[in-house]
Simulated assay, not measured.
Amino acid sequence: MGLLEQGEYVCALPGSATGPAWQEMEAHNFAITGASSYRTDKGVGTYLLEGKRVTFTRGPMKGHRMMLLSSGLLQELGGDGKLGRLRCHRSGPLED
């Protein structure tokens, strides 16, 4: 078991060759606030990091799963266990 790096995480979908490179998905943004804890605009919760797999276990993101690609970079996991399109990256330290 492990912990994600504390800070604000911004989530986005890939853009297109003719438009912006990324399309931010503000509704998916979150912050890692402490040992296995996170917050969103809708409330607080907990997560579990096992190896590279992150599972949000309580709170507004309960049941959502992600894969830790590198320090501060996560990508969603679908119900079939395959990587999805949504990526979240650590954008900076915690904001008050």
Rank of each mutant, 00 (worst) to 15 (best):
G59F: 03
D96N: 11
S91Q: 13
G45V: 02
H64P: 00
H64K: 14
M66Q: 14
S36H: 13
R65P: 01
N29H: 15
R39F: 01
A12I: 00
E95V: 10
A35C: 00
T40F: 04
R53K: 15
L48F: 03
G45E: 08
G51I: 01
E26T: 10
H64Q: 15
S36K: 13
G72V: 04
R39E: 15
Y9A: 08
R65A: 12
L3W: 03
G78C: 02
R39H: 08
M25K: 11
G81D: 11
L69D: 15
E95K: 13
G84M: 06
S91H: 11
E50S: 13
N29K: 09
D96K: 11
C11Y: 07
E8Y: 05
A21N: 04
P60T: 08
A35I: 02
D41H: 06
K62Q: 15
G79Y: 02
L83D: 08
R53D: 14
A27T: 07
G19C: 03
L13S: 10
G84C: 07
A12G: 09
P14K: 07
E76Q: 13
L83W: 05
G72E: 10
R90A: 05
K52M: 06
E24R: 14
G45H: 07
T33R: 06
M67P: 00
R58Q: 15
G84I: 02
R39Y: 01
E50F: 00
S36Q: 15
T46L: 04
P20L: 10
G34V: 01
P93T: 09
G34W: 01
L4A: 05
E95I: 04
M67N: 08
M61R: 14
S37V: 00
L86V: 09
K62C: 06
T18L: 13
R85S: 14
N29S: 13
D80Q: 09
L73S: 05
G81W: 07
S37I: 00
S36M: 07
L73P: 00
P93Q: 12
S37K: 14
E5C: 00
G15V: 05
L74S: 07
T40K: 06
A21K: 12
P14R: 06
A31K: 10
Y47K: 07
T55N: 11
C11S: 09
L83S: 11
M67D: 11
E50R: 12
G81H: 08
L73K: 13
K52E: 15
N29T: 04
F56V: 03
G45M: 03
A31V: 00
V10A: 12
V44Q: 14
R58D: 13
E95L: 12
G78S: 11
E26M: 01
L77P: 07
D80K: 09
G51F: 04
S16Y: 06
E5D: 13
V54S: 08
L73H: 11
T55G: 02
L94E: 09
K42Q: 15
